[in-house]
Amino acid sequence: MTLSSIRKVYQGIADRRQMFRMFDRHAQRPNRFEGDAGPLYAGEWFEVGRVEHDYMLKILPPLWMRGEMFALREFLTDSIISVFYTLRIDGRTRYFHAYCDLNVTRSPVEMRDAIVERESWPVKAMTHNERLEHIWSATHDEYRGYAGDQWLPEHRGKRTVLYYGGRRGTTLKLLEDLTDDEIAAKLPVHLRHLPEPIAA
């Protein structure tokens, strides 16, 4: 599974428990200790509260601080690092966490710009991929996983979630194969009816 593009992975402001869960959203991946997991994490970002932001700043001295951002001292992988942002968007100060790849020139700056652009949308909306990422982030570990040997070879390693289908019972589905109705059923009520952004 290769993701690696800038993407919002949670809607709303993550509390401390949710923040720590999302630091390792891919902990259940197959062959966890083999290969480079960097592409799974690079580009992921979500909003946190001020308390969570300040808590992370005080844990250890940061690796570096630059204006509205600081990087944690510990690397997630060889080049992937946690960067926290304090950004003023539409007149409000907000706080974010992102995984940046320091092997990519200007990665933290490009991440900052992408967050500001995304959070400056004039209408509250969610893309299809943001809906799937939110479902993955919000689903408890017992109800999500990765397709194993019982799946067709082309699906092995893809993300799966349990879906309750009423009289049909509970089924394991590929996250990417959820229908619009299934996605709506798995989203919190306040997110179900958000429109998808209209392409320019």
Score class of each variant (00 low, 15 high):
Ala138His: 01
His193Cys: 10
Pro122Cys: 05
Ala138Ile: 01
Ile89Trp: 05
Ala114Met: 09
Val104Tyr: 01
Met22Ser: 05
Lys158His: 13
Glu130Ser: 08
Val104Arg: 07
Ile89Gly: 08
Gly145Ile: 02
Leu72Gln: 14
Leu194Asn: 06
Asp113Lys: 12
Phe75Ile: 05
His190Ala: 12
Met1Tyr: 00
Phe84Thr: 09
Arg32Lys: 14
Leu191His: 06
Glu196Lys: 13
Ala114Phe: 13
Leu102Ile: 08
Arg32Pro: 11
Asp180Gln: 09
Trp64His: 07
Asp141Leu: 11
Ala14Tyr: 05
Leu178Glu: 07
Gly145Met: 01
Met65Tyr: 01
Gly67Arg: 10
Glu133Cys: 04
Leu57Ser: 08
Asp24Gly: 07
Glu68Tyr: 06
Thr2Phe: 08
Glu52Arg: 01
Arg66Asp: 14
Lys8Leu: 13
Thr160Met: 03
Thr86Gln: 15
Arg92Glu: 15
Asp141Pro: 01
Glu52Pro: 03
Met111Gly: 11
Glu182Leu: 08
Ser107Tyr: 02
Leu175Ser: 04
Ala14Pro: 04
Leu172Lys: 10
Glu117Asn: 09
Gln28Ile: 10
His134Glu: 05
Ala200Lys: 10
Phe96Asn: 04
Ile81Gly: 07
Arg21Ile: 15
Phe23Arg: 15
Val189Ser: 14
Ala199Phe: 11
Glu154Thr: 12
Val104Lys: 06
Ala27Gly: 04
Gly145Ser: 02
Gly157His: 01
Arg118Pro: 04
Tyr85Glu: 02
Leu175Ala: 04
Glu68His: 14
Arg118Met: 13
Glu142Thr: 11
Gln11Val: 12
Ala184Asn: 00
Gly43Trp: 00
His134Tyr: 11
Glu176Arg: 00
Ile80Asn: 10
Gly91Cys: 04
Met56Thr: 05
Arg144Ile: 12
Asp15Tyr: 00
Arg144Met: 10
Pro30Ser: 09
Tyr95Lys: 06
Leu60Tyr: 01
Arg159Leu: 04
Gln11Tyr: 13
Trp121Glu: 15
Tyr99Gly: 03
Ser4Glu: 09
Glu110Arg: 11
Leu162Lys: 15
Gly145Thr: 03
Ala27Met: 09
Thr170Leu: 10
Asp78Asn: 11
Ile115His: 03
Leu175His: 04
Trp136Pro: 05
Arg29Tyr: 03
Ala37Met: 05
Phe75Ala: 15
His53Pro: 06
Arg25Val: 07
Tyr99Trp: 10
Ser82Met: 13
Arg17Trp: 09
Ser107Cys: 10
